[in-house]
């Protein structure tokens, strides 16, 4: 896939329309962040996709991202450190960006 196939994104790199997301696009966005996607990443990405389809929102902050992962996947994965290792920077922002979700509203 080339950048020409990349759907519209905002100035922070979040997809304008979450429905235009595909796994290929995820890999491309991750590349920008210098992240290679492995099974552990996909587990969180697919969790976020399902969270968005159930709740029509991204977890609003990093804390609530960690809390939501904990609720769905347990204590080990629902921890700040685990998620920071997978998604550098602010994990909620990085993971939502790769998962094609809107920007978490309360993440600075």
């Amino acid at each position: 896939m080339t950048d020409a196939n990349m759907p519209a994104r905002n100035n922070e790199g979040f997809l304008e329309n979450a429905n235009e997301w595909t796994p290929e696009i995820a890999a491309l966005i991750a590349q920008d962040e210098h992240i290679a996607l492995y099974e552990k990443h996909w587990e969180i990405i697919m969790f976020l996709r399902s969270f968005y389809s159930s709740h029509e929102m991204s977890p609003p902050s990093n804390r609530l991202f960690v809390k939501s992962v904990k609720e769905a996947l347990g204590d080990e994965k629902g921890s700040s450190i685990y998620l920071m290792q997978l998604f550098s920077g602010t994990p909620a922002k990085t993971a939502c960006r790769i998962a094609g979700l809107p920007r978490p509203t309360n993440c600075l």
């Binding site: 159930s54 709740h55 029509e56 929102m57 977890p59 809390k67 939501s68 609720e71």
Partner: peptide, 11 residues
């Protein structure tokens, strides 16, 4: 309705 359904998850 869908936004609200996240309330219990968030605590």
């Amino acid at each position: 309705e869908k936004n609200l359904s996240a309330a219990p998850i968030f605590g």
